[in-house]
């Protein structure tokens, strides 16, 4: 399955007035893979998905999905993709079956009864076939949306924040379904998320994006190992002084935006920890606390941007607006 490029993005740009939401993005996604766009709210993830799914016109640049141009061949692109939007998009006044039936008719799915049955079984909702969607839980709605996105056998499935706002257990379930449909249907999946562990668990390839640009692109494992095996989180009385000390000792560090917190990345954290503590004490920097963990994508993001990806439910438009205001204020 692997090998041929199914999503091809070339200098794709979207500006909203003066704000550049997606900035000359280049990206190739291979057939059959699960690829993740990882970044904080307002990074341009949903804007990218909107352009790829033909609902938003790019300002410049181009993108091919299943070898069709997203601007010039909209109908062909729409027929080749399935999409699960960030917000809910089911008709809650209709039953699960009716929602799928509607979709099957819109996409002219052949032998729709069989296909609907298959999909409902795949996401474990066949027992709720005739329940009105308004009586579904958040997780059930998401599963139904995934089933709907797959109903017409798309070549590429877009999942925009598929587990946003779901509880950890439901999130796990959704992950399993996503893995399963990728394995069984062979469908290429492009998902956006700001949950590090989601990208880590699901994705073969990850692009970390921030302010509309890809700042790092690789397999999750490689991104992490490039960073170092372990991460030490120091909480100290004087972050600046401590960073100065670390720099003299040639440590890979990053001062966090949160006051007094300094992150040190290393391949031998266990040996380094006591050394650094005594180094700090000798130079009059008080260590209030230290924690050590093996590096995560969160740390990778932190090292690249100096910020954390906050786990907040947010609407991209609003965050973009805030970014815009911040930009204006700087002038």
């Amino acid at each position: 399955m692997m090998g041929s490029t199914i999503v091809e993005i070339r200098s794709l740009t979207k500006r909203f007035g003066k704000l550049t939401a997606v900035d000359a993005m280049n990206l190739d996604i291979q057939e059959g893979e699960i690829f993740g766009l990882l970044g904080p709210n307002g990074a341009g993830k949903t804007t990218t998905i909107s352009m790829l799914s033909t609902t938003l016109a790019p300002t410049s640049g181009k993108a091919l999905v299943a070898r069709h141009d997203v601007v010039r061949e909209q109908d062909a692109v729409r027929g080749a993709i399935g999409i699960v939007f960030q917000g809910q998009s089911l008709d809650t006044e209709l039953t699960a079956y009716e929602n799928l039936d509607f979709h099957a008719r819109l996409y002219a799915v052949g032998d729709k009864e069989t296909r609907i049955k298959e999909m409902l079984e795949l996401v474990g909702l066949h027992k709720n076939r005739d329940t009105l969607v308004k009586n579904f839980s958040g997780g059930m709605k998401r599963r139904l949306e995934i089933a709907r996105g797959l109903l017409h056998k798309p070549k590429v499935l877009f999942l925009d924040e598929p587990t946003l706002g779901l509880d950890p257990q439901t999130r796990r379930h959704i992950w399993e379904y996503v893995k399963r449909i990728n394995r069984e249907d062979g469908v290429t999946i492009l998902l956006t998320t700001h949950y590090m562990e989601e990208a880590d668990y699901l994705c073969g390839g990850v692009a970390i994006i921030d302010y509309g640009r890809i700042i790092s692109l690789d397999e999750p494992q490689k991104l992490k190992s490039r960073l170092g095996e372990t991460v030490l989180d120091f909480h100290v009385s004087d972050a600046d002084a401590f960073c100065g000390l670390l720099k003299k000792n040639k440590c890979k560090t990053k001062k966090s935006a949160v006051g007094g917190r300094v992150q040190v990345v290393s391949s031998d954290g266990e040996e380094l920890l006591p050394k650094l503590v005594s180094l700090a004490e000798r130079n009059g920097v008080q260590v209030k606390g230290v924690s050590m963990h093996s590096s995560t994508l969160e740390d990778v993001f932190m090292q690249l941007t100096g910020r954390t990806i906050r786990d907040e439910a947010g609407n991209e438009k609003e965050t973009l607006r805030q970014r815009f205001r911040a930009m204006e204020a700087k002038r």
């Binding site: 809910q88 998009s89 089911l90």
Partner: peptide, 13 residues
């Protein structure tokens, strides 16, 4: 408001 419009807008019609 309830998002169903998106489902219609990305359909190949």
């Amino acid at each position: 408001q309830f998002g169903f419009m998106k489902e219609m807008l990305v359909a190949p019609i």
